[in-house]
Write a protein that binds this DNA or RNA. Structure first.
Lengths: 172, 172
DNA sequence: GTGGGGCATTAACCTATGTTAAAAATCACA
DNA sequence: TGTGATTTTTAACATAGGTTAATGCCCCAC
């Protein structure tokens, strides 16, 4: 909470319209964003121009390209608003510096990174061991409210299949 | 380094013979392990009895089931030695407690978790956007020494395909 | 050296998903 | 309410990878 409070107080508020990008794949982006309201998607555009969705980001989450912010390299993904969003922006380094001065902030950082790792581990597990149908069922069971807000196109891109394949799966 | 030194000094040394498991999927495991030598694999057994490999763990790495250690739930994967291994075992909570008292340990923890997240992100990216052939090529390019030490069986299980499919891919 | 066990290859056939294209449904809004 | 735009469905065909099983290979214990 301390960390979120810090961001809420010291960060720069941003409004992002539906369909607009917060940052784009290939750009440097040293910021981290706290999502106050709205829904976003983080996605890759592959070499052959196809989009695959890495994750959906809901209110209350902190999001940023760790890679870009931490390693000073271009982001590997884009972040785009699926609905009008209120964000608060703060430089990643500022948070890291803050964590060097406060044990409680450090601890919160550690908790956030731990839960991030667990989330990614879960996704890795699903991609590695479940079929597209099973991944779809899991998503519907775990996040029914989220699924309602998404287009089938975006769900498919998140599952790693085409919209056509998802339509087929639903048909059963 | 401070963290690794702590583990090396205060942990319990373990020797694991090739083929033996450090912990098994479904068990509680509150420990974290520093790999001093050898090679291990972390893998899942799915509901229908198939094995898929989550990652290979080489010397110098710290490994453990974050989920099991942090959330007090059974591990979702098993850890098995692919060659004779020297490990050092330390309770995860001990490290977490330590990080609450020392900023520098906290910072190291954060760095480890950051690089873990980046690694997982990369894997997620590959599973989501690359074909089996491309994943195999990437692995061969990025970790040629590792590939040499592995059986084709294990490589296939890591790529998320069957050994038969991998043999076909290599044929080309 | 012999025999057994696991690993790798090959082949034949099967299934899930991709691709393309067209039709149908839904939505957005003038 | 009508109309164009977008999303979803359906169909036909192509391809990657799964499954099973047979064969050969290699290593190692005896």
């Amino acid at each position: 909470m301390e960390l979120q409070n810090y961001i809420a107080k010291n960060g720069i508020p941003l409004e992002i319209e539906k369909g607009k990008q917060v940052f784009a794949q290939g750009e440097l982006c040293d910021y981290v964003y706290l999502v106050k309201s709205g829904l976003l998607k983080a996605f890759y555009i592959t070499a052959d121009g196809k989009e695959t969705i890495k994750s959906f980001i809901q209110a209350g989450t902190i999001i940023g390209s760790l890679n870009a912010a931490h390693c000073k390299v271009p982001s590997t993904f884009s972040l785009e608003a699926l609905s009008r969003c209120e964000l608060v922006q703060v430089p990643f380094n500022e948070l890291l510096a803050l964590s060097k001065k406060s044990i409680s902030i450090s601890q919160e950082f550690i908790q956030i990174l731990l839960s991030l790792s667990l989330k990614k581990e879960r996704r890795e597990y699903e991609l590695l061991t479940l079929s597209a149908t099973e991944r779809f069922e899991t998503l519907c069971k775990d996040q029914p409210e989220l699924v309602k807000k998404l287009t089938q196109n975006d769900i498919a891109k998140y599952l790693g299949i085409t919209p056509v394949a998802l339509s087929r799966i639903k048909h059963k």
